Computed example of a mutant assay.
Amino acid sequence: MKYLRSVRGRMLCIAFVPGGALVLVAFVIAFFLVQQAVRTSDLAMETAGAADRTARAVVALQGQRGDAMADPLRRTEAYATFTQRIDTAIAGLRDYARRAPDAESGYQQMTAVELLSVAEGMYRADSLALAGLDGVTRRTFAAAVAAYRAELARVAPQLTESGRTAYESLTRSADWSRLAAAEDALAAAEPLPVPESTWRSAAYTVSDQLGRLYSQQNQYAVQLTLDDGRRTLAGAIAAGTALLLFAGLLLVVVRRLVARVPVPVVPIMVPTVRAAIPRPRHARSRRPRTPEPWPLKAVFDDLRRS
Rank of each mutant, 00 (worst) to 15 (best):
D102M: 07
P72I: 00
G121V: 02
P262R: 10
T198R: 07
V113P: 06
C13A: 08
M11W: 05
A181D: 08
L116Q: 05
A91N: 10
R256F: 11
M11N: 02
S6A: 15
Q64L: 09
L186H: 01
A185I: 05
A129T: 07
A131K: 04
A100C: 11
R304S: 03
G9E: 03
T198M: 06
L159R: 05
D302V: 02
D227L: 12
R75V: 01
V263F: 06
M110S: 13
R200F: 01
L133F: 14
A37P: 03
S285E: 09
A55S: 15
A100S: 15
A97R: 09
L233T: 03
L210G: 00
V145L: 03
F300C: 04
L250S: 14
D42E: 12
G132V: 03
G235V: 02
M110K: 06
S41A: 14
W176N: 09
A150W: 00
T111A: 12
A57H: 02
D184Q: 07
A239T: 15
F300P: 01
V38H: 08
Q108S: 06
P264Q: 02
L4G: 02
G66Y: 00
L213G: 03
E168T: 11
S173M: 03
G240K: 07
Y214P: 03
V58E: 00
S306G: 10
